[in-house]
Structures are given as structure tokens and as C-alpha cells.
Design a protein around this nucleic acid. Structure first.
Length: 347
DNA sequence: GACATGCTTTGCACTCGCCT
DNA sequence: AGGCGAGTGCAAAGCATGTC
């Protein structure tokens, strides 16, 4: 099962926990060692002093029962309640004071190993299922939700079973991860830039809600694209309030056939990104406005252009204040602090 | 000191155009 | 056809800063 929580990476050296980090984009993340030590299921010391280093990856989650109990306590204290367990867990990990993290009563479930440099061998097991079993021996929680499927039929049956049990599980999940069990075969298959070829996620259907599309407004991207964004009547979907969703480009607007005033179906793709699925045509009334691509940039007033065959409408003004602002936000926000290059990129 | 506001960090989806 | 990388975007929580 694919837990709905925060991914973390734990590094053990000679059996002792020496580093813990959020996963970030895969290469960077926040260092959270002190907080990780307060999480149930993360042993400070492995049951065997494995020589060398081993990276254990897993998910930190807040159980539904914990989430409900904490929110009751917070409501009684008059403190703002958490929106959902996932964000409560992620926020808990970023606490400056690890005593606050410990109060969140978070749980850790391992899903595999990363970099392994054991002087005794290359990996702790030749299979994924063996790795999880070995991690349990070393002091991590047992993954009782994992199942080995010998063929596609068994896999489909397992997914159907998970679907029926989803609401009764003690933790939130957003799908099922299907992995090749043999680590040798995993290595043979390798990875693409988007992820490994030996694993894929089967996403369970996202929770959907109905709301009104008030307006389609234009947002100026950092490259000058004038993007349509849906301004929605705020609606709670999957524990968060959604009020905006990108419509990507003007071909998408046409494809989805949405109009200002429509009642639309909204979901959170991957339980994260707000997405307009489409309009409820039965509720459409005459006079609802069809969004049209902008003729001028809403930020600087320059005449907009649409390259032949492109779904994007562009503001050609490189000095457009909205573009400059977005560029600065992007480069600073993503920590691309190459100041020399920044000037060039901004021109 | 309390509260409001805005920024930062995080995780992830999706589309498009180019490349192999 | 599928891989790849760039570009774009959203919400929540934490935290820093400003205001009263």
C-alpha cells in the first residue's frame, strides 16, 4: 500500500542512526534527525550492529485515530485543528522543538533501502520482500500490508481488496505500489528520469466534489505564458479547501468545455494537485460565458501573441513586471542562487 | 505579547515539445 | 512510441516579520 504521509530517508552507520532527512526532490531535503528520533518505529539503534552504512527509506504517517485525538485536544484548547493527517505529519517533522514532534505521535513504516555500503554484502536481501522482513528483524515495524503476487490476476485481486478495505484502514493511503521483488531484476530494468521501471503506483480514485467555476482568470508565467486558472467557489476536497486550479492552456479549456458559471467536478490529482475534471452539463444554463484567450497581457497590457499551432498564448514583453516577479520567485524559491546566471536568465 | 500577514518549504500532477 | 526535461501550478504548516 502507498501510505499518504511524508517520505523520509534514515542513515545508519554501524547500526546507529546518524542522519534523517525529508526526501525533498530526491537530491535535497531537510535534516530532521532530532525529530525523527521521536517517531515510533524509528529505532535509534538497530538490533544488530551492521558494519558500514545503510539508508532506510520509509513513510512517516499520522494514524487516523491519532489525528482525530489530536484535533479533539486542539479544539478543546481553541487551537486551529489540522486539515488532514498528511500535513499534520509533514508539519510535525519540521518542528524546531523535537518535543513538539513527539507530541504528534507519528509512526514510521519502511518501504525499502537506498544507498547501502555494508562491508558484509551489497544488500541486506536479494528481494524486496526479504528486505522488508530483514528490516523488521533490525527493529523496524513489520509491513503487514505487503503481499507477493505471482501473476496479474493475483495483483488485480489484491488491489480490489485494498479498495474495499481503504476506508477501514488505520492510516490514509493513496494507492498501491507494484514492485518487482527481485533486486537483480530491478537493477536490470533500471530507471527513467521519472522513476524506476521496476515499480509503478496504482492510484486509487481521488475524492471528488462539486463546486461552481466563478471565473477563468489569466496568470502570467515566468516565461511569459498567459495561463488560464479556474477561480472556484471554495470547496473541501480530501480534507483541504480548494479555491483555484490550473487549466494548463487554452486547448485544455476547449477540451474540458468549461464555462464561467458552470458547476464543475473537482478532485485532487494524486491527492495533492487541485484539478478540474469537467463540467456538469445538466446544470449548465444559458448565458454562461465561454472563456476566451486574452488579447493583451493583464499585467503590462502588451498585445498577446499565440504561435502557430501552440496551445499557449504569450506576452512577448520580456520586461513584463509579472514575468520578472515570477522568475525571481522561481529562481530564489528553488534555491538556484547562481547570481551570475540569474541576470542572463532574466533578460 | 498577541495577532495578522506573507514567505518558505514540501510534495506532487500534468502538459508540451524535443530527443532517441 | 516512449523517454526526458522544462515549465507551471496548488495547498498546508511552519516560521519570520510587522503592527497594534
Amino acid at each position: 500500500m502507498k501510505f499518504d504521509g511524508a517520505s523520509v530517508s534514515l542513515t545508519y552507520r554501524d547500526g546507529l542512526l546518524v542522519n534523517a532527512a525529508t526526501r525533498g526532490d530526491g537530491t535535497t531535503g531537510e535534516e530532521i534527525l532530532a525529530n525523527a528520533k521521536t517517531v515510533r518505529g524509528i529505532p535509534y539503534k538497530l538490533s544488530e550492529p551492521l558494519p558500514g552504512t545503510i539508508e532506510v527509506r520509509g513513510e512517516i504517517v499520522m494514524l487516523r485515530s491519532t489525528f482525530e485525538r489530536l484535533n479533539l485536544e486542539r479544539a478543546e484548547k481553541g487551537v486551529q485543528v489540522f486539515a488532514n493527517p498528511r500535513n499534520a505529519a509533514a508539519g510535525g517533522l519540521r518542528q524546531k522543538d523535537s518535543r513538539e514532534t513527539s507530541k504528534r505521535r507519528l509512526d514510521f513504516f519502511p518501504y525499502g533501502t537506498g544507498a547501502v555500503d555494508l562491508r558484509t554484502g551489497r544488500q541486506i536481501s536479494a528481494t524486496h520482500s526479504g528486505t522488508l522482513a530483514r528490516l523488521h528483524d533490525l527493529g523496524f515495524p513489520r509491513r503487514t500490508d505487503v503481499q507477493i503476487c505471482l501473476n496479474v490476476e493475483e495483483l488485480i485481486a489484491y488491489i480490489e481488496d485494498v479498495k474495499t478495505r481503504r476506508a477501514d484502514l488505520p492510516f490514509g493511503i493513496d494507492g498501491v505500489v507494484v514492485k518487482i521483488d527481485s533486486l537483480d531484476q530491478q537493477e536490470d530494468l533500471g530507471s527513467t528520469s521519472h522513476g524506476p521501471r521496476w515499480a509503478t503506483a496504482y492510484k486509487l480514485p481521488s475524492e471528488q466534489a462539486f463546486t461552481r467555476l466563478n471565473k477563468v482568470f489569466i496568470q502570467v508565467g515566468r516565461t511569459g505564458t498567459l495561463n488560464p486558472v479556474a477561480d472556484l467557489e471554495p470547496v473541501v476536497v480530501g480534507g483541504v479547501t480548494v479555491s483555484r486550479a490550473t487549466l494548463h492552456n487554452w486547448d485544455e479549456v476547449v477540451r474540458k468545455d468549461v464555462r464561467e458559471g458552470d458547476t464543475v467536478i473537482v478532485q485532487r490529482a494524486g491527492d495533492v494537485i487541485p484539478q478540474v475534471v469537467g463540467p456538469v452539463l445538466e446544470k449548465r444554463e444559458e448565458g454562461f460565458t465561454v472563456p476566451v484567450p486574452p488579447t493583451h497581457c493583464p499585467a503590462c497590457g502588451t498585445e498577446a501573441v499565440r504561435p502557430e499551432g501552440s496551445p499557449f498564448v504569450l506576452c512577448p514583453n520580456r520586461a513584463c513586471p509579472a514575468q520578472v516577479s515570477m522568475k525571481i520567485q522561481h529562481f530564489v524559491g528553488r534555491k538556484m542562487m547562481d547570481i551570475d546566471g540569474l541576470g542572463e536568465k532574466l533578460i
